[in-house]
């Protein structure tokens, strides 16, 4: 029992920290895909967000914002991400280009642009390291709860809880508000939605820009809490993992959150399983590929069939059937 508890106290905080960026980005993907626009570009949006988060934090540090700088850095990344996602929106919604191809190009562009800008601004392949970091802080009262306290509330970043709060907000917005209903109807049957007077293209633009904002936030949270600076190799695959979490969670906020935490657990295990009793016998490779294998299983219907929104990946042309 003691051994198991020891494992949980090591693994759970690490999993929660790794899960926060995935959760935020997956929520972004949810907005876009629920409106009917595939977003393979989440990876690129996270890259943009990581860059924006670090540059923003450095900028606000120099303005003298002190300890608040990282939070403003994240806000800056949200804005950058939303603006950047406009490219994907224009190409796939207005120009009716292939959404997947556009998403792939978005990933290329994000990496090229950010590393290019990094070289221009900092004269080398990576940015300076931010000095105002977010720190792991125990939450008063809650961290004193026996057993659960040290596991969930002792050594975590505030960003994880903000991310969970955002998941709840997203759930409310998408499933309990008129806007959410419109968003989903546009993703399921855009023509019917159009007939009812819903502005299909505008709703999709909002969906994609939300994915940019939240993907930007996800990238920024990763860069600020885990990396500390930005380089071409800061975001490698987290965006795709967030996409996987979205699908594994069957395009629902809480499902995606659960999947993100689960993937975070797998990531935490892949780095620390070697030191844990009982788990050291399992080769690291199994933990590394677990999220991806599970996503494939989920799609194939072995873990309950994941059904995408009906109109996903279909450009909408007024008057077409």
């Amino acid at each position: 029992m003691d051994v198991l508890y020891q494992i949980l106290v090591t693994i759970v905080p690490a999993a929660l920290i790794a899960a926060a960026p995935l959760m935020l980005t997956a929520m972004g993907g949810l907005f876009s895909e629920r409106s009917g626009v595939v977003n393979i570009g989440l990876e690129g949006l996270m890259v943009m967000g990581a860059f924006g988060g670090i540059v923003g934090t450095l900028m606000f540090e120099s303005f003298g914002f002190g300890a608040a700088s990282p939070w403003f850095g994240i806000l800056f990344a949200v804005v950058i991400g939303a603006i950047f996602s406009l490219i994907h929106a224009v190409v796939s919604i207005s120009f009716r280009g292939d959404q997947i191809v556009s998403g792939v190009a978005l990933n290329f562009l994000a990496l090229g642009l950010t590393v290019f800008l990094t070289r221009e601004i900092f004269d080398r392949g990576q940015t300076d390291t931010i000095s105002e970091r977010l720190f792991r802080t125990p939450i008063p009262i809650l961290s004193d709860i026996p057993i659960i306290g040290p596991m969930l509330f002792d050594r975590v970043y505030a960003t994880t809880y903000v991310a969970i709060l955002i998941v709840v907000i997203v759930w409310f917005v998408v499933f309990k508000t008129p806007f959410g209903l419109r968003l989903r109807s546009v993703g399921e049957h855009p023509m019917a939605a159009d007939t009812m007077g819903i502005k299909v293209l505008r709703t999709r633009y909002i969906g994609v820009m939300m994915s940019g904002a939240l993907g930007g936030a996800g990238g920024a949270v990763y860069a600020i809490t885990i990396a500390g600076n930005f380089a071409g190799g800061t975001i490698v695959g987290q965006g795709f993992m967030a996409l996987a979490a979205l699908i594994f969670g069957k395009w629902t906020p809480f499902g995606a959150m659960g999947a993100a935490i689960f993937f975070g657990l797998a990531m935490a295990l892949s780095t620390s399983a070697q030191q844990l009793p009982g788990l050291s016998a399992i080769p690291q490779i199994w933990f590394l590929i677990l999220p991806y294998v599970l996503t494939i299983f989920a799609l194939a219907g072995f873990v309950g069939k994941a059904e995408p929104p009906k109109a996903l990946n279909q450009p909408y042309t007024k008057g077409s059937r």
Binding site: G97, A105, F108, L109, F116
Partner: peptide, 16 residues
Amino acid sequence: ELVEIVIALIIFFVAS
């Protein structure tokens, strides 16, 4: 990296 930007833009334009 400018080259990567150009390549990405080519994809965008062809897709459009």
